[in-house]
Computed example of a mutant assay.
Amino acid sequence: MNAPAHFDAPDRLLRLPEVSEMVGLSKSMIYRKMRDGSFPAAIKPGGVSTRWKESEVCRWVEKVSENRIVGSHHG
């Protein structure tokens, strides 16, 4: 039995330093944006560890980049 295509590449769970490096934001800014709903929510896979789904962080980066490009056009 074949697994659906979206299970072929599991979504990595990123630690805060990886997320911070990917998005160029500090820890406090990431948590502030999470609270106001403008950044993907973290998950707690167990214990006290906090992780973010790589796909969600990548989508956020793409969305922010698209907004910046669209917003930078003055016509």
Rank of each mutant, 00 (worst) to 15 (best):
S65V: 08
W52S: 01
E62G: 09
D8I: 09
E66Y: 15
V64H: 08
D8G: 05
K27C: 03
G75L: 10
F7R: 11
H6Y: 15
E56K: 03
M34S: 06
R35F: 01
Y31L: 01
K53R: 14
A42N: 15
V23L: 09
V70Y: 00
S26T: 08
G71R: 00
G47K: 12
G71E: 00
M1P: 04
I43L: 08
S65P: 07
V23S: 11
R15S: 06
L14M: 04
T50D: 05
R59A: 11
S55T: 04
N2C: 04
L14P: 06
S38Y: 11
I69R: 11
S38I: 13
E21M: 13
A41L: 13
R35I: 01
G75H: 13
S55H: 01
D11H: 05
P45G: 05
H73Q: 14
E21D: 07
K63I: 02
I43N: 04
A41Y: 15
D11W: 01
K27I: 00
I30E: 04
G75C: 14
V70T: 00
E18Y: 03
K44F: 10
R15W: 05
P10M: 04
V70I: 03
S55Y: 03
P45N: 09
E54H: 11
L14Q: 06
I30N: 04
L25K: 15
S38H: 09
V19P: 03
V64P: 04
E21S: 13
Y31N: 00
H6D: 13
S65W: 12
K44R: 13
D8V: 07
V48A: 15
E62V: 09
L16A: 10
L16F: 12
V64Y: 04
K44P: 06
E62I: 11
M29S: 12
G37W: 07
R68S: 09
R59T: 06
D8S: 13
G46P: 09
V57Y: 02
E18G: 00
P17A: 05
K44D: 07
H74T: 11
V57D: 01
S38C: 09
G46H: 12
C58L: 14
H74V: 15
A5M: 14
E56N: 02
M29K: 12
W60E: 01
I69V: 15
F39E: 00
A9Y: 08
F7H: 05
K53Y: 07
V64D: 08
N2P: 07
A42R: 14
S20Y: 07
S65D: 12
V61R: 06
V61K: 07
S20C: 11
N67F: 10
R59N: 10
R68I: 05
D36T: 08
D8W: 15
V61Y: 03
L13F: 08
G47Y: 12
D36V: 14
G37Q: 03
R51A: 07
V61W: 02
